[in-house]
Amino acid sequence: MGLFDRFKSKNKIEKTPEKSNLILSMPMFNSDENYALDKLIHDLESYWDLKISDISGDDSVATFNINDETVAVAIMPVPIPQSDLEGIFQYNYLWKDASEELKAMTNHAIVTVLSSETDFVERFKIVTKLNASILRTTTNSMGIYQGSQTLLIPKNVYLDFADLLHQDILPIQLWLYIGIINQETTSSAYTYGLKEFGNSEIEIINSTKIGSELYDFIHLIIDYIIGSDVVLKHGETIGFSAEQKIKITKSKAVYLEGDSLKLDV
Rank of each mutant, 00 (worst) to 15 (best):
F161K: 15
L256K: 04
T118I: 15
S116L: 01
I80R: 12
Q173Y: 03
K19E: 11
K103Q: 14
S99L: 00
N30C: 14
N206K: 12
L151V: 04
T118F: 15
I55P: 01
I55R: 08
I204Q: 10
E184R: 13
S83M: 06
E45S: 14
I204P: 05
Y91E: 07
L220E: 09
V111C: 08
F64G: 10
M76L: 10
M76Y: 12
M28S: 12
T249H: 04
T185E: 14
L263Q: 02
I246C: 03
I246N: 12
W175C: 07
A253G: 13
I248T: 01
H42I: 12
P17D: 08
P79L: 02
L174H: 00
S133T: 06
Y93R: 10
S31T: 11
S148N: 07
D54V: 00
S200E: 08
I246R: 03
G211M: 03
S83N: 10
I202L: 12
L165K: 05
N107V: 00
I226W: 07
F29I: 02
Q90C: 00
L22Q: 04
L22I: 10
R6V: 15
Y35K: 12
I204G: 09
D38W: 04
F217W: 11
S9K: 15
T249N: 09
G211H: 06
N156G: 14
I202Y: 11
Q149K: 15
T112M: 13
F197P: 13
K51E: 14
L256Q: 02
E18V: 13
L232E: 07
V230S: 00
G198Y: 03
I172C: 09
S83T: 10
L50S: 08
Q146F: 05
H166G: 10
V78S: 11
E33L: 07
D259L: 01
N11I: 10
M1L: 15
V78A: 11
V73P: 02
I238H: 03
S133I: 09
Q82G: 07
H108D: 04
D259R: 01
N30V: 03
S207T: 01
L85R: 07
N182H: 09
M1N: 13
K12V: 04
S133P: 03
I238K: 06
A36I: 15
K103L: 14
I75S: 04
L94D: 11
I169K: 13
G2N: 15
A74C: 01
Q146Y: 10
V71N: 04
D97T: 12
S188Q: 04
Y215W: 07
G2R: 11
E236C: 00
G87R: 09
S20P: 05
K247M: 07
